[in-house]
Design a protein around this nucleic acid. Structure first.
Length: 326
DNA sequence: CGCTTTTGACCAGCGC
DNA sequence: GCGCTGGTCAAAAGCG
């Protein structure tokens, strides 16, 4: 495992500029340098940083916004018709988004993709007899449901600057696929939670523009406690710590979506205090995120004291962020 | 031996 | 209908 990890790391290292970075350390990505995978964007799988590109040009994001918006990606699970009916949120184009999930509204329905192992009539007009045999075998191997729209679990994603692709978030994952990404030299890896009955998945890919940035997309909700003690995995300044730094301090359940029973819908509200209700959320996020929620965070506090961030992110990096702001 | 990763093939959805 | 792409499956290989 470690061997393979090293190989991967080497690969990524070869394609990135780490010369001025401490291995294993994390720094904040520049959200405006982020690439925009159009296909993903069109499918409503947009990432936070992409959405930043659509905000008004005169929007001067606060430090909080710079950190939070690009790193956490709420994935509203709203049907197209429902979007119109249930979206009293202000138009993202006209106003500075108070919550980033506004601009994350999918452009298309969240179609499908949980495959099934059912044997339901999966037939294909086969060619010759030889082909029929082959097809038979294939059909037996990969029976899938048709006529049943797969429901996509809510997703959220965040970016971290790390040389390691697969970030240790405390849960155990099994890789079940890897695909080449269009317009990117880096493959996308697919992982599934190994805990029985837990169907949480995650995708890990590297930014094609900045190979040091890893985009992790979680899909689903853990139905079990984290097998690894959160603090245990965060104790050392690893990528997990970076996760915590990047995402969790800013994750605020949006009251509106809480009411709608959308456990995954979060809003990034830098100037509002953290909400109190975390019902059904406890297993939605990686352990380190939960951990942060337990402690409770407030952006006001964060602005005064960067918390973990100032411990982990090199001060120079943070200064650079400030400069970019100016 | 059990678990994980790799990898080619397959399927579904979408755009043209 | 066709091609492209994302996502998934599952056999084989790898690893401890």
């Amino acid at each position: 495992m470690e061997k393979k990890q090293e190989l991967k790391t080497d690969n990524s290292m070869a394609n990135s500029a780490f010369s001025d970075e401490i291995p294993g350390s994390l720094s904040l990505p520049s959200i405006f340098d982020m690439p925009c995978d159009q296909s993903d964007h069109q499918k409503g799988l947009s990432l936070g940083f992409m959405d930043m590109l659509s905000i008004p040009a005169d929007y001067n994001p606060s430090l909080f916004d710079l950190f939070s918006t690009p790193t956490m990606m709420p994935q509203p699970q709203v049907q197209p018709q429902q979007q119109q009916q249930q979206q009293p949120l202000p138009s993202p184009a006209s106003t500075v988004p108070e919550s980033s999930e506004v601009v994350n509204t999918p452009a298309t329905p969240n179609s499908s993709s949980i495959s099934s192992s059912s044997n339901e009539g999966q037939t294909k007009a086969g060619g010759g007899e030889e082909d029929q045999d082959q097809e038979k075998t294939k059909k037996q191997l990969k029976p899938k449901k048709k006529n049943q729209k797969r429901q996509r679990e809510p997703r959220f994603a965040f970016m971290t600057k790390s040389e390691v692709d697969h970030l240790d978030d405390g849960y155990r994952w099994r890789k079940y696929g890897q695909k080449a990404v269009k317009n990117s030299p880096y493959p996308r890896s697919y992982y599934r939670c190994t805990t029985a009955g837990c169907g949480v998945k995650k995708r890990v890919e590297r930014s094609c523009d900045d190979s040091s940035i890893v985009v992790t997309t979680y899909e689903g909700q853990h139905k079990h406690p984290c097998p690894v003690t959160p603090r245990g995995s965060i104790g050392i300044a690893t990528e997990a710590a970076g996760f915590s730094t990047f995402a969790s301090p800013f994750v605020v359940p949006h009251p509106q979506y809480q009411q709608q029973q959308h456990p995954y819908i979060y809003s990034l509200q830098p100037r509002l205090n953290v909400s109190t209700s975390t019902t059904n959320l406890n297993h939605a996020f990686p352990s380190f995120v939960q951990d942060q929620r337990r402690f409770g965070t407030s952006s006001a506090t964060f602005l005064r004291d960067h918390g973990l961030l100032q411990d982990i992110v090199p001060s120079q990096t943070r200064k650079d962020q400030f400069k970019e702001e100016e």
